[in-house]
Design a protein around this nucleic acid. Sequence first.
DNA 1: ATCGTCATTTGT
DNA 2: CAAATGACGATC
Length: 651
Amino acid sequence: MAVDISLAHLDRPFDYLVAARDDDIAAPGCRVRVRFAGQLVDGYLLDRADTTEHQGRLSYLERVVSPEPVLVPEIAGLARAVADRYAGTLADVLRLAIPPRHATAEREPGPEAAKPPETPRPGSWARYPAGPAFLHALAEGRPVRAAWSALPGPDWPGEIAVAAAAAASAGRGTVIVVPDARDLARVAEALTAGHVPHVSLAADLGPAERYRRWLAVRRGLVNVVAGTRAATFAPVADLGLVILWDDGDDLHAEPRAPYPNAREVLALRAHRANAAALIGGFARTAELTQLVANGWAKPLTGGPEALRTLTPRVIAAWGVTDDSELAKDAAALSARLPSLALRTAREALRGGRQPSSRQPEPGATVPGPVLVQVPRRGYLASFACDRCRAPARCALCQGPLQITGSHQVPDCRWCGALAADWACRNCGATRVRALVTGAARTAEELGRAFPGVPVRTSGGSHVLAAVSDEPALVIATPGAEPVAAGGYAGALLLDGWALLGRPSLRAAEETLRRWLNAAALTRPAAPVVVLAEAGLPVVQALIRWDPVHFDEREVAERAELGFPPAVRMAAVSGDPAALADFLLSAELPPAAEILGPVPVDGADDTERALIRIDRHRGPELARALHAAQARRSARKESGAIRVQLDPAEVV
DNA sequence: ATCGTCATTTGT
DNA sequence: CAAATGACGATC
């Protein structure tokens, strides 16, 4: 059996005797209680056997908590593999995988088994040249794996539903994971509309309802599950397909140990279960690009005709050679809203003519709501030239500037150099300004610029799911953009600097992801103004709606620099003495490179080291880190050390 | 938390 | 030299 103790040196099965009275209910997978080192602890029965390797005396199981076999073999194996991948313990992963028991829900018989749907029609998958073949493979139960670049527009939940129906028509189950509750509602609605029997495992269900639905899945009464990241481990019977939407969203990263990411777990799960996979979104991640490069997944992208007709018309606020807009904006700059953006919004709101050289869609001139994407509150203020608003960067290392504590002079976030006699490399001005652009202030300013137009806001604790087709300004932070019933008539992406200026390895990729996600909500050929320079590769990728090539370049660059996903990184943190001891005693593979340790900002007495190793030696590194944790926990050494593989932010 | 093992101390 | 004590490590 597996005991529920997350100490690395106890992360292995223990043998117990089963009393005669428990013999018929003690089935593999059920919850049990045992005396372990004097204490009563919970655990899961992994297996029954007639013999033991153990030399000493065996204890009896204290009791069988419930005969319900909640830990099915597929998940037991997956959880072990995830623990190994992330240098964590099985107990920690099982806490993420299996919901708390609810005895009342367990006694209920559950719903009747649903009958599988017919093979679905391809529908909007027909717009993808490889779409019909992909569905055909699913309906035949073949383990096809797709890196999906979804076409812009509202059809993706329906496409997910069709894929799940295709797998179901082959008698196979599907796990669908989306970032948040609003996406989940869309997918659940599409499944219902497509007559695909399913359960939705939302995070906000009460414990009873959550366990009731989860049990219906475990008991094989439903075989399509949609949910947020906790659904990654849903014990779907005869898994045939895993689906992950918007795999770059940081909500897919589990914040509890051992910090697994839904994409990695689902890819591992599909691989182990010989199931198909559909992973993607409007954007691409470096990790998914890597899976394509390895040959694990094949690209599934829209046809050129579909791309041409469906994508918005993206306009960068500043062209590389075009100073005329910049000159016009000189006055408007103080208001942070370039005249092009205001003009575009005005035309979209009242249904004006589109200044397009291409054939405008008839719908594009119909008035409608305009989406305005603004930076999330609490972003680190980034700095820009006071005159031309080019990002202010360190003269020595090109790092981003910041203002800390009492200093009036900005310093570099990367190398720490003071930017005392800073001069703009673009225009020569010597003053910097902080770009503090909160949603509330932008809303206020836009409201004044468009008297009589309703202003709706979505973000933070107040998130709108949808807005009507009436002309309105819809101000939203990234990830909180409401869906407009008939698509937005236009969009303004105002957070370019704040996003691109973030001191993160993923800044460009993440910026493109947020832009594409917002731009995908517009009508075909609707104008989208992005406040960034047209010459930047990330802006070009948006204009051409080509996240794949952008990301391929990104991955190649990261490989040259020795950044993930070309290498595997581990972050190890804790108090300085414990960390030093850990790093010294850990028998890391010789190829591992230790960076740091350095103090962690904002935490007293905590340091962090990064460990870098070739991607193929990831398993070795994880094993060594787990062994080092085991050594520490066996010696009851004080001061916890946190080990995190693939840390999200490697600055 | 509790138990067993093994080295060390203590009592004859 | 045997019994008592205690440190340590494993934990079924």
